[in-house]
């Protein structure tokens, strides 16, 4: 039972992070390898707002959420916008460079020590006993809930929201979208904002649950195989991919070797690339896009 809970929690973490990769890739065909860093930035923002809004945890969280959305939009406006029309690979490398820059800046601003935004906000994190004998910490439970809500909201937005439909349209054919009056920059900025927002929510909840160090980037990087296994342009795929990666990781730690935990996602990724490079639910022709 505990194993099952662990799988669900880890998969939720991966799923919540992976949807950020999917959002940006689906809309602008850019792979954002700075997603892990942006996620971490979200939790550091919470740390900062927690100290400036001390005593008002709700306000602190709301401010951090708004800030992370803004960060995503700013990243697009000031950096990625310049890379539109360039080779997809140059854009990917730019995100890599952005990741390195952010990593350096975060250590400069917040130092590399382990920190606990949960304490700063005055939250405690009691474990909840589940029927069947498993236990789950409060924030891990909240994380599972947040993942479910985020996915529901994203599905709804992309299916029925006018800007959601526009985001899908821009992803399919940017030129036609522009000819239909859709401002591509607005759509891309929105995608970056939403992606950073969902990533940051994941980062905040992880740091509330288990503290904040700069190793969090690795979690962000491991969520990437989840997105790719499911298909980089499919939200439902990200959910399934996260489940596969999460389960494989938890089971291999439990039964084979704890050291494997950092490799298993990538082993699955390679297997997937060999068998079905476009992922479980991805669109096949994406493969030829270089």
């Amino acid at each position: 039972m505990q194993l099952f809970v662990n799988i669900i929690v880890l998969s939720s973490i991966y799923a919540l992070i992976a949807c950020g990769y999917v959002l940006i890739y689906r809309v602008s065909r850019v792979l954002n390898l700075a997603h892990g860093e942006l996620m971490m930035l979200g939790s550091y923002l919470l740390l900062t707002t927690a100290s400036s809004f001390s005593g008002h945890p709700a306000a602190a969280i709301a401010a951090a959420v708004v800030l992370s959305l803004t960060v995503g939009v700013l990243v697009y406006v000031f950096l990625m916008r310049k890379m539109t029309g360039e080779m997809a690979l140059a854009a990917v490398l730019t995100t890599v460079a952005l990741g390195i820059l952010l990593r350096g800046l975060m250590v400069l601003i917040w130092s590399a020590q382990q920190q606990y935004p949960g304490q700063a906000l005055g939250f405690s994190n009691p474990a909840i006993a589940l029927p069947g004998g498993g236990r789950i910490s409060t924030f891990a439970a909240l994380l599972v809930l947040a993942t479910a809500l985020t996915y529901a909201a994203l599905f709804f937005f992309l299916r029925f929201g006018r800007w959601g439909v526009r985001m899908r349209a821009a992803g399919q054919n940017p030129l036609l979208a522009a000819q239909r009056g859709i401002n591509l920059h607005a759509v891309y900025a929105l995608a970056w904002g939403l992606s950073t927002l969902t990533g940051s929510i994941a980062g905040m909840l992880i740091s509330l649950d288990s503290g904040l160090t700069n190793t969090m980037v690795i979690i962000g990087l491991k969520a990437f195989p989840a997105a790719l296994v499911g298909g980089l342009d499919s939200l439902a795929g990200a959910l399934v991919g996260a489940l596969i990666i999460g389960a494989a990781e938890v089971l291999s730690i439990q039964y084979i070797d704890p050291l494997l935990s950092d490799v298993v996602p990538f082993l699955i990724l390679i297997a997937m690339l060999v068998v079905r490079p476009w992922g479980l639910f991805g669109t096949r022709e994406e493969l030829d896009r270089v």
């Binding site: 792979l31 997809a88 690979l89 990917v92 990437f224 195989p225 790719l228 950092d262 490799v263 990538f266 082993l267 990724l269 390679i270 690339l273 060999v274 490079p277 493969l287 030829d288 896009r289 270089v290």
Partner: peptide, 21 residues
Amino acid sequence: LPSLRLRGLYLAVSTLALHFI
């Protein structure tokens, strides 16, 4: 070997994964 099937982004990702392995 992956480069025989994959191009660009996906190839980069596969080499990234091999690095970890």
